[in-house]
């Protein structure tokens, strides 16, 4: 029996769809439905159509502020993780000569990401805190008289925690796309008279674009969807979109929470779509 190409393709993605439909499509549809329903304010949801939840979300100045804060963290995290992740991956691929050593160092980079995110985040407290190592050290050398307050429970601490957690999401895909570069291309460019800077600009950077884009998708979607890091590391001083959503759910305001959830989902999807427009990952892969 000879199966057609389409049938083979679909058979191979059936298991994937068997997960995605009940655990992604259905829940999103449930939330979408709830976002158009009325509530009694005590957790009861009535299947009566209303647009009130959306007008509530769109007319609130809180929504604007929440998105501003969340975008700010997303942007800062993206910049830092991309720059750090690129150079780490570049070092491992182009400067470490032994393949086993490169793989070993690569794994050394990933080890901390195997421990709980929350533990990793908390591990900054003995360092950044008021009585933490950095403040004690700086005070010991006489560089400062008062402990630096901005180190912990501040937007600074939030960005530190995000970069600490998410740089791996840049390193892995960039490492992958850099490893795919044929070293002979670099040799050829050098032989043709290109400087090492030219090689970086015209060979390596263009060829790492798909890796950076892939990493950016992870970083953007994780930071946009996070509430825990912001909650703990900002010391409660900064809110986030998902944090506000979580509080709504906590007080059983399901329909208005659902409306803001739908808005957030659309915003994240649009951002990812924008990244996918810059780099066609599927095209990169089918090469």
């Amino acid at each position: 029996m000879k199966l057609s190409r389409n049938a083979v393709g679909w058979l191979n993605v059936v298991p994937l769809l068997a997960i995605l439909i009940p655990f992604f499509v259905v829940p999103i549809c449930v939330i979408l439905a709830v976002s158009f329903m009325e509530t009694d304010g005590f957790g009861g949801i009535f299947p009566v159509f209303t647009l009130e939840n959306y007008t509530g979300v769109f007319t609130s100045s809180l929504t604007f502020n929440l998105y501003y804060e969340t975008f700010k963290f997303t942007f800062l995290t993206l910049i830092f993780t991309a720059v750090i992740g690129f150079w780490i991956a570049y070092f491992l691929v182009f400067h470490v000569r032994s393949k086993i050593l490169a793989m070993g160092l690569f794994l050394v980079c990933t080890v901390p990401f195997w421990t709980s995110n929350i533990i990793r985040m908390i591990s900054w407290i003995p360092l950044l805190g008021k009585e933490g190592l950095i403040n004690m050290g700086l005070q010991g050398t006489g560089a400062i008289d008062q402990p630096l307050e901005f180190l912990l429970f501040s937007p600074f601490a939030v960005v530190v925690a995000y970069v600490h957690q998410l740089t791996i999401f840049m390193i892995v895909p960039v490492f992958n796309s850099l490893s795919r570069i044929d070293k002979r291309v670099v040799e050829a460019a050098l032989d043709a008279g290109a400087s090492r800077l030219d090689v970086m600009r015209f060979v390596i950077l263009p060829m790492s674009k798909s890796g950076i884009a892939l990493g950016a998708i992870f970083v953007v979607s994780i930071v946009m969807g996070d509430f825990f890091v912001v909650k703990v590391m900002s010391g409660g001083g900064t809110a986030s979109v998902v944090g506000a959503f979580y509080e709504d759910v906590g007080v059983l305001q399901y329909p208005s929470a659902a409306a803001s959830a739908i808005l957030l989902t659309i915003v994240v999807m649009l951002m990812v779509a924008a990244i996918l427009r810059v780099v066609d990952i599927r095209k990169e892969i089918s090469l």
């Binding site: 994937l16 992604f24 829940p27 999103i28 939330i31 599927r282």
Partner: peptide, 29 residues
């Protein structure tokens, strides 16, 4: 294969959907 782009974007959607939102959706379902 026919419809591969659809499956691909469904997957990307599942990846980038805010985790807590999806969790609550699954809980509600």
């Amino acid at each position: 294969f026919r419809g591969d782009t659809f499956v691909f974007y469904l997957m990307i959607g599942s990846l980038v959907a805010p985790g807590l939102v999806l969790g609550i959706g699954i809980g509600l379902a």
